[in-house]
C-alpha cells in the first residue's frame, strides 16, 4: 500500500526525473551530468518506494533517525559535487584566460600586418 508521504516523495522524484530528461532532450547538459542526475532521481524513487531500505541502512551504520542518514549522504554528495564544480570552474577560467591572451596577441599581430600589407583604407 502506498502511503500519503510516499505519494509526495515519488511525485517529487518523478518531477525531478522529468526535469532532467527534458534538459537532456534539449541538449542543455553534458551527458555525464545528465546521467548523474538521472541516477540521483532513480535513487530518490527507490528510497521512496522501498521503505525498508532506509531503515536497514540506519540500523547498519548505527544512526538514530533515518532522516539524518538521508541528510548525511545527501550533504556528502552535494559537497563532493561542489568541489567538483570548483575544479571545473577553475579549468574554465584558465581556458578563458589563455584564449583571451592568445586573441589579444593575435589582434595585435593582425593590426600590424594590416598596417604593412593590407589594403589601404
Amino acid at each position: 500500500m502506498i502511503l500519503k508521504h510516499q505519494i509526495v516523495t515519488i511525485g517529487t522524484s518523478a518531477l525531478f526525473l522529468l526535469l532532467v530528461l527534458n534538459l537532456l532532450r534539449k541538449n542543455k547538459m553534458k551527458e555525464i551530468y545528465s546521467i548523474l542526475w538521472f541516477v540521483v532521481g532513480l535513487i530518490f524513487i527507490v528510497i521512496s518506494l522501498w521503505e525498508g531500505l532506509l531503515t536497514r541502512l540506519t540500523e547498519l551504520i548505527g544512526a538514530k533517525y533515518p532522516a539524518s542518514v538521508l541528510f548525511f549522504f545527501g550533504l556528502i554528495f552535494v559537497l563532493i559535487l561542489l568541489v567538483h564544480f570548483s575544479v571545473e570552474i577553475s579549468t574554465l577560467r584558465k581556458h578563458a584566460k589563455d584564449l583571451n591572451q592568445s586573441l589579444a596577441i593575435l589582434n595585435n599581430e593582425l593590426a600590424a600586418l594590416k598596417k604593412n600589407f593590407g589594403p589601404k583604407a
Partner: peptide
C-alpha cells in the same frame, strides 16, 4: 605597440600576456 585584452584579466593575466608576447 599595445595589446588589448578581451576582458579584464587583472595584473597577473595582463603581465603574463606580455611574457607570452
Amino acid at each position: 605597440p599595445y595589446i588589448s585584452t578581451i576582458f579584464n584579466l587583472g595584473i597577473g593575466g595582463a603581465v603574463q600576456t606580455g611574457y607570452k608576447y
